[in-house]
Design a protein around this nucleic acid. Structure first.
Lengths: 232, 232
DNA sequence: CGAATGCTTCGGCCGCGGACGAAGCATTCC
DNA sequence: GGAATGCTTCGTCCGCGGCCGAAGCATTCG
């Protein structure tokens, strides 16, 4: 055998992702956010009971981690390896039959800056995260991220009021491994707030039909001034 | 959706690998060699007819490429992206449910040096590949690898006559991403020749029942002298 | 040419597993 | 307390797909 692991390992892992409903679930979790079973049920387009069974399998297979919280069940991807595998699998699955896909400039702009649900990713996203760590506005340990008192003031100064964003159940500050940069960017309520504030300031702009974000001239100035980052 | 590609792409790709028989087939092809349908039938442990159906699916899914040759049908992986995906999936599949696996000494020896079909992998394999690049015996661009004129002489000096190995269809020089090292090692006819020559010189020895390779004292000296590498 | 080999197509069997709804816990809300 | 919500367990159904053997094409061999 070519592989160190047995063949069943590959087949088991793959078959977990080989079901359309489970694939939808996993893709929905790909940005690192935790979603409830109910939300996933809606996303996957199957009943609550079916979703529950799928979640049980994914959990047993080490794909997802489930966290009970009140009467909700929060689901997230279990390990970064899983996210990495899904990324690569999607890349491999594209144009299986077809030959090439024209990667082109569109891909390049995605790497520069893109939206990942409601926060920013790409070089811009990881740049901001790194800048906030550098100036000790946040601390990243392991998987979790924490906002410092200094960071709270820093962000308030930037126009972000996290306390005002309500007592949502959603984690305040969460990191997400960036697909193109292989370094973390910020997700969670903080990531979302940074994104919406950047949009409000006109620093970045969405483009229809793509996740690519345009960094405006004002944005270049602003990101450089506030965070000290230059995006190539 | 979080992903660039649609959810069906992931599910389709994954379900192709989600069947034990197909997974065996793909794993058997992981080193880039082309095998016949009959061989794969034996490897997968299913009948010829079943194998034929599996091959049709894998081919339609862009996983494998099939080349007709006389009354044989040679099968190989279609694209490097597929091999990369399988590598990462196997890595992600390990210890899905289980927390850690006791990596232990057996695993350590596998990481040091192991056979990957007919060539060498592990630290030894990637070390040799790196050494050959360093001394400009081979060039690695992107996925392909090419032997230089200097490299041909270098290898002849080492006792490898690649011209004599026949006009096999098999690629001369091919790289394979190493599972444990995450760096390329050499496969293809060159990789096979390096392995058999090392065996002939008594530099490495196979061990029964495992893919681990033992590096002999002569091997330590030899690999250090010829390639300038020390394997920890 | 006929016989042997390699693979595919066809037909049929069978079981896995994904789907749902109803009922059962658990938690929260009023 | 009771009602509402969120999720899981259970029972059941049903269809997809993997499996095989026999027959059917190809190709090669003698």
């Amino acid at each position: 055998m070519s592989a160190i692991v047995s063949t069943t390992t590959l087949a088991e892992f793959a078959s977990l992702l080989g079901d359309p409903a489970r694939a939808s679930i996993v893709i929905a979790l790909m940005d690192g956010r935790a979603l409830t079973a109910g939300e996933l049920s809606w996303i996957a387009g199957v009943s609550a009971s079916t979703t529950s069974e799928h979640l049980a399998k994914l959990s047993a297979g080490g794909i997802i981690a489930v966290e009970k919280q009140g009467r909700h069940r929060y689901v997230r991807l279990a390990r970064p390896e899983v996210a990495a595998a899904v990324e690569v699998m999607m890349a491999a699955g594209i144009d299986g039959p077809r030959r090439y896909r024209p990667v082109g400039p569109r891909d390049a702009t995605l790497r520069t800056a893109r939206s990942c649900y409601d926060h920013m990713a790409g070089r811009l996203g990881v740049g901001i995260a790194a800048a906030l760590v550098r100036c000790e506005a946040i601390r990243l340990d392991d998987a979790a991220a924490a906002l410092t008192a200094h960071g709270e003031r820093f962000l308030a100064n930037f126009g972000i009021d996290l306390a005002g964003s309500g007592a949502s159940k959603r984690p305040l500050c969460r990191t997400c491994l960036d697909w193109s940069e292989r370094r973390p960017h910020l997700a969670g309520r903080l990531g979302a707030a940074l994104f919406s504030r950047s949009l409000a300031l006109g620093w970045v702009g969405r483009q229809s039909g793509t996740r690519a974000l345009a960094i405006t001239p004002a944005g270049r100035q602003g990101f450089a001034g506030v965070f000290g980052i230059e995006i190539a």
